[in-house]
Design a protein around this nucleic acid. Structure first.
Lengths: 117, 117
DNA sequence: TGAAGTACGCACCTTTTGGTAACTATGCTT
DNA sequence: AAGCATAGTTACCAAAAGGTGCGTACTTCA
């Protein structure tokens, strides 16, 4: 419906915020992880080595805000909550996963010194 | 040559730093910009609205460090310097440009409230 | 003579980020 | 009756990020 095109190259365009969220270090790891299915807080905490509870919660909240992730609270005790990608989130994951793959495949080249060739 | 696979999901893997650099808000804008050809400092400063000189220099330095961008100093006065993608950088740009495109195309959906459907 | 143009580096200072630890809720187990 | 498990939240604090303004070097043009 909106014909106004987002332009992240403009500082005042709100899409700049979205760029910051999906470009975030943790989002870049969490989103591709979730393509394998829903995950619980504790699972993510272990899968994403080094993330703190605080950052995990915060990141998931942002992703939820932008409709990329759906949070499901089962209302049980002890608490059970899990997270899954929305359709929108899945379409983004298709684009972000290659970024992770690129890093895995090319990381060594980013350090190769031209002199040693 | 290196058969050791990078794993950004491990906190101690140095590829985690690369994830942070290429996931950076500014890198995400600068790298796709450079596919159109080499650009000077002042051009980038205007093209990427809102970036400060400090952040631009800092970001370009990181990208240069990871062999993604090549800096050329023509040694002229007044100074003339420009930046272009390396082959490696170009291969990354092919993967990052879709991220920007996704944002432009889907930004409005990230705000759509399910209730209004 | 002196201001402009270019690509910075540097120092200073404010804002933001992110870690840690303590606290919450509640039903089940020991 | 006490403690555990889970998924948080909150407050506090240290560290890092990032903006602003000034300095630099050299040549050209008014």
């Amino acid at each position: 419906m909106s014909d106004i095109k987002a332009n992240p190259y403009s500082g005042s365009c709100p899409s700049r915020d979205l760029i910051a969220v999906i470009g975030d270090k943790w989002s870049l790891l969490i989103i591709p992880l979730l393509v394998n299915g829903r995950m619980r807080n504790s699972e993510l905490l272990h899968a994403v080595d080094g993330i703190s509870q605080k950052m995990l919660t915060q990141t998931l909240k942002q992703l939820e805000f932008y409709q990329l992730v759906q949070r499901t609270d089962y209302g049980e005790v002890p608490p059970r909550v899990d997270y899954q990608l929305t359709d929108l989130g899945r379409s983004l994951a298709d684009i972000l996963s290659p970024v992770d793959q690129w890093v895995v495949e090319n990381f060594d080249k980013t350090r190769a010194d031209p002199k040693s060739e």
